[in-house]
Structure formats: C-alpha cells, structure tokens
C-alpha cells in the first residue's frame, strides 16, 4: 500500500549547517506516528521541509504517492497535507470563528470571491463551526483570538489545520507550553480524530508519546537514529542514551 506520506533521502541545509540529513520516512495511511528527539534535532525543520516552507537541499517528498517535492506550500495543502505550528501562528485580531472560516474558504478556493459577503456562505460557516466544536471552542467563536487563554489557542491551531480537510496532519508540539493537565486534554482531542486521517506529531512528553503513538521515529542531529513501535523504542539502549544522557552526566 502506498504510504500517506513518504520522504527519500531528504536533506535541509542552512548555509554550511545540515539541519536534516538523509531522512527517509514512510508513514502508513491512518497512522499515529510520533517524531521525537532532543531539542535542535531538526524535527521542526523536517516539518518545514515536508510542508514546503523550507526548500530541501536534496531528496524527495511524496504525499499519497504523488510527487510533492517541487510543489509550493499552498499546493501541498490542497494535496491533503496540513500542519500546525510549534509557536502559534494565528490571526490574532480576527475572531476565533473567522480564523477557521478563512481556512475553510481557502480550502474551498472561495477566497477569490470579492463581490459577495463572507457572511452569506452558510456552508462554510457551518463547517468552520463544526471544526471549532471538535476542539470544544464553539462557545468562544466570537472572541478575538488575542483574548483567548493559551491552551485554547493551541486547540485553535489544530482547528485551523482541520479546516483544510487534510489526509495527513502534521502537529508540531501541539501541547508546547501548556501545563501537563491541559496537554492531556489536547492529546485526547488528537486521539479523537477520525481513524482514516494520518497523524504525525512531535512531542517531548514520553508518557504522551507512548500512550498515543503506534509508531515512533527518533531523530538525532538531523538523522534518523531508529524507528519502531513504542515497545521497541522504549527498549532501545541508544534511545535511552540520547534521552538519559541529556538529563544525566553529559548535561554539563
């Protein structure tokens, strides 16, 4: 079966520094696939390369078997690849509803319409509301984003990405900066996503990773160290060394 998302020998360079090195990844359709690794491992850069906001130096990207390497970021969204950001990228002075509505309209390619009121598009409004309902934000729909608690802003990140109706959703630390109690709630929503949707997520909390991922890729210094099931990863001494080594004696 074709992978929902695949890369072959993907590399990203920033000048002389190679942030991602020869990454070959294959994510099965419907997977819950975690990407882990220490800070600075290149996880976010890999997401940028997947989604097209950073140009790779080498390698290929396939979305559901289709060549995406030369496609723009926007084109890849229309191919079914959506993402969220580690640092909130919201439309802060728009309402919560308009944030999601805009994403719905862009997916529909309705934003070329300049002769009708945005309020007339009932179908788009309903869809935006249902995205908000999914992340439990419907009650806050008319609030401006800037007035939202941080945890709700993280959920809105996800709602905007869902409005693109992706086949593959890449979540870059969806619970970054959120207290532990709330991050479980965020992952509970991710867990509730339809099984047909392929989800790739980055997360630092190993408890959450082992609970929600069925497959884990470990990235260290831009390279894949290993990939496997949670059981395999937790038993892998090299992974332990990377994580324990950081906290333990190598810390200085």
């Amino acid at each position: 079966m074709t992978a929902a998302l695949a890369t072959t020998a993907l590399s990203v360079r920033f000048g002389a520094f190679q942030a991602v090195r020869d990454v070959s990844l294959s994510v099965r359709a419907g997977a819950r696939h975690a990407l882990i690794g220490p800070n600075g491992a290149g996880k976010t850069t890999l997401v940028h390369a997947l989604t097209g906001s950073v140009k790779p130096a080498a390698g290929r990207i396939l979305i559901a078997g289709e060549e995406a390497t030369g496609r723009s970021e926007a084109q890849r969204v229309h191919m079914g690849l959506a993402r969220t950001f580690q640092i909130n990228q919201l439309f802060r002075n728009l309402t919560v509803l308009d944030n999601v509505l805009l994403a719905v309209l862009e997916r529909n390619r309705r934003t070329a319409v300049f002769w009708r009121s945005v309020r007339n598009d009932r179908a788009a409004l309903d869809e935006a509301r249902s995205c908000l309902a999914f992340v439990n934000l419907l009650a806050l729909a008319e609030r401006p984003v800037a007035a939202l608690p941080y945890g709700s802003q993280r959920l809105l990140e996800i709602a905007i990405a869902l409005a693109a109706r992706p086949r593959v959703l890449v979540l870059d630390e969806p619970a970054a900066g959120v207290p532990a109690a709330e991050s479980a709630a965020i992952f509970e929503r991710i867990h509730a996503l339809p099984a047909s949707l392929t989800v790739v997520f980055i997360e630092h909390d190993m408890g959450l990773v082992f609970r929600f991922a069925e497959r884990i890729t470990v990235l260290v210094a831009g390279q894949i160290l290993t990939e496997g099931t949670p059981a395999e990863i937790s038993a892998d001494p090299r992974v332990r060394e990377v994580y324990l080594g950081r906290r333990g004696d190598h810390a200085a």
Binding site: S53, L105, E106, F114, V118, A124
Partner: peptide, 19 residues
C-alpha cells in the same frame, strides 16, 4: 467578502496563509 477576509489574513499572519 471572502477575498477581503483573505487580505486581512495576509496582514495578520502572512506566514500562516500558505499553510
């Protein structure tokens, strides 16, 4: 219009728009 909302989106966060 929807187009006007997209323009606001670009002014608010030009980075999110392609995403």
């Amino acid at each position: 219009s929807p187009f006007g909302l997209a323009l606001r989106g670009i002014r608010e966060n030009s980075r999110r728009m392609p995403a």
